[in-house]
Computed example of a mutant assay.
Amino acid sequence: MAKTILHVEGMSCGHCKSAVEEVLTRMEGVEKAEVRLEEHQVIVEYDATKTDESRMKEAVEAQGYDVK
Rank of each mutant, 00 (worst) to 15 (best):
M1Y: 13
A2K: 06
K3R: 14
K3Y: 05
T4V: 15
I5F: 06
I5C: 06
L6D: 04
L6V: 07
H7L: 02
H7I: 11
H7V: 11
H7M: 01
V8L: 14
E9T: 10
G10P: 05
G10Y: 04
G10E: 06
M11K: 01
M11A: 05
S12C: 01
S12D: 01
C13K: 03
C13W: 02
G14E: 11
H15E: 11
C16F: 08
C16A: 07
K17P: 01
V20Q: 04
V20R: 01
E21M: 09
E21W: 02
E22V: 10
V23K: 04
L24A: 02
T25G: 02
T25E: 05
T25R: 06
T25D: 00
R26L: 10
R26Q: 12
M27S: 10
E28M: 04
E28A: 14
E28V: 12
G29V: 08
V30D: 00
E31I: 13
E31R: 09
K32E: 12
A33T: 08
A33E: 03
A33Y: 03
E34W: 00
E34H: 05
V35S: 04
R36E: 06
R36Q: 01
E39T: 10
E39M: 10
E39F: 07
E39I: 04
H40D: 15
Q41G: 01
V42N: 11
V42T: 12
I43K: 00
V44N: 06
E45Q: 13
Y46I: 13
Y46R: 03
D47P: 07
D47M: 06
D47H: 12
D47Y: 08
A48K: 05
T49A: 15
T49P: 00
D52H: 13
E53M: 10
S54Q: 09
R55N: 13
M56N: 05
K57Q: 14
K57P: 02
E58Y: 13
E58G: 10
E58Q: 13
A59P: 09
V60F: 08
A62T: 04
G64S: 10
G64M: 03
Y65L: 07
Y65V: 08
V67T: 14
V67C: 07
V67K: 12
K68M: 11
